[in-house]
Amino acid sequence: MANLKDIRKRISSVKSTQQITKAMQMVAAAKLKKAQENVVRARPYASKMSEVLASLAVRVKPGKHPLLQRREEKKVELLVIASDRGLCGGYNTNVMKVADSFLQDKKDDCELVLSVVGRKTRDYFRRRNWEFQTEELNPGVVDFRWAEKLSRGIIDRYVEKETDAVYVAYTEFKSAMTQNVVVKRLLPLEPKPLAEDEIPVEYIYEPSEDALLADILPRYIFTQVFRMLLESVASEHGSRMTAMDSATNNAIEMTAKLTLLYNRARQAAITTELMEIVSGAEALN
């Protein structure tokens, strides 16, 4: 039988852990709300952007801009986006798993280069002896200019033909509960075709069509990367919230079990004591 003092100690330590996880859960919930708002707010811009691009792209020949040119995939860059910090359930591991299997799939067919966002990502791949094109810490609060800077490097490498395709592994944010890790192709761009019933509008372009395209394509990439970063951050908070919620519940459950154990032990101690007194008294008679 465990002794009373030990059990009391366990209970208080579980309770203080519970306080921490509860606090983390609440912080994550607050951050999630903000991150979620950011995701939603960025949506109109992103969807307008792809509309404009789609209507522009149907009237331009595919080979016209380097970012639209398809090449044989000999050198592929993978950008992996995860977080700086742990304690967020399977969030980081899930991203790594997907990224790893992507790399496994591709490694026989082409040369691979890696770019990472997030300390956990960096550490994971560094342990596996990868070298990085770019390594960034996760900024937490995503700034559009930051996304622009990150994308600029990726675009430059693509235009210089250092890479033939660029993929991104990140976590898609569906809701606080569900997140999906996906690998999406960032480059070359494939503007989504117009829907059947959509009629492409004939525009007047100012400045020229080509100049506009050259300006709008990189910006579209920035928007994409920006959105992926936003979704990743929101997913991280969502994942942390869920993980901390179940940690808190576990702690509550554990406290209840330990309390029961404690009471039982206390009862047993009292019973033993009583028995001793009674038998002592009996011996005297």
């Binding site: 509008v201 525009y203 007047i204 372009y205 100012e206 400045p207 506009l212």
Partner: peptide, 9 residues
């Protein structure tokens, strides 16, 4: 209103 379609930076 009624301006012809137009795209500009």
């Amino acid at each position: 209103p009624g301006h012809t379609p137009f795209l500009s930076t």
